[in-house]
Amino acid sequence: MIRNLYQIDKHHISKVEYDNTPDDLDENVDHWLEIKVDDRQEIVPILEEHDFDELILKDFVKPSKLHNLRLSSEAMVLNLPISNSENIYVKETLTLMIRPGLLVTIVHQSNQIFTGLINSLNNNPFDLNIDLNYLVYFMVSYVLKKTANHIQKARNEVDDLSKKLDEAPEELDISDIIDVKDNVHNLSNIVEDQYIALQAIPKLRWADGVVRIDDEIGRTIKNYGFILDLTSRLEENIKGVQSHYQLLLQERSNKKLNTLTIIQAIFVPLTLLTGIYGMNFVNMPELNMVNGYFVFLIVIVIIAITELWVFWRRGWFD
Rank of each mutant, 00 (worst) to 15 (best):
Y224Q: 05
I300A: 08
D23M: 07
L132D: 05
F52T: 10
I276V: 15
E307N: 12
V241R: 08
L230V: 10
D38G: 13
S83H: 01
K62T: 09
Q199P: 00
L273C: 04
E74C: 10
L172M: 14
V44T: 13
D193K: 07
A200G: 14
K163H: 10
K91L: 07
L33T: 13
I177D: 01
I113W: 04
I177V: 04
V61K: 03
D131R: 09
I300T: 15
E27W: 09
V140W: 05
V299M: 09
N183A: 03
D26N: 15
S14F: 13
I276W: 12
N20A: 14
K15A: 12
L117V: 00
E307K: 13
V61Q: 04
P169T: 06
K10P: 06
I221T: 08
V180L: 00
V301L: 15
T115M: 01
G218D: 07
I106F: 10
Y245T: 00
A75V: 06
S110G: 05
I227N: 07
I300K: 06
R155C: 08
D39S: 13
L257F: 05
I82A: 09
N28V: 06
N4P: 03
I130W: 03
P100W: 04
D23H: 11
F126L: 05
E171L: 13
R99I: 01
N4L: 12
N237A: 13
Q242N: 12
P45S: 00
E34N: 15
L5G: 06
F60M: 12
L57K: 07
L144Q: 10
I43P: 07
L308T: 08
I196G: 09
P81G: 05
G218R: 10
L78E: 00
Q242F: 08
S120F: 10
I302C: 08
T231G: 09
L165T: 03
I262Q: 04
E167K: 13
V310S: 11
N283F: 13
Y134A: 04
N119I: 01
T95R: 11
L165Q: 05
E286M: 10
I196T: 14
L57H: 06
P125I: 05
D193E: 15
D229T: 05
S232K: 08
L135Q: 03
L132Q: 06
L121F: 03
Y224A: 04
L272R: 00
N122C: 03
P125C: 03
T271W: 02
K62N: 11
V211D: 07
R233P: 09
E34T: 11
R155G: 14
D131F: 03
S64C: 01
E307V: 09
V61L: 01
R314C: 04
D176P: 01
M139I: 14
Q41W: 11
L94P: 04
A265M: 03
L187I: 02
K36V: 00
K181F: 08
L57E: 05
I266P: 01
M139E: 00
N79R: 05
N111I: 02
I82H: 09
D39H: 14
H108V: 07
N280V: 04
L198V: 06
T231W: 07
F296H: 07
N79F: 03
D53C: 08
R70A: 09
V211R: 09
D59W: 09
S120K: 15
I190R: 02
I196V: 15
A200H: 14
D38S: 15
D131T: 07
I177K: 04
L308F: 15
W309G: 06
V77H: 09
K146R: 13
K65G: 10
D38K: 15
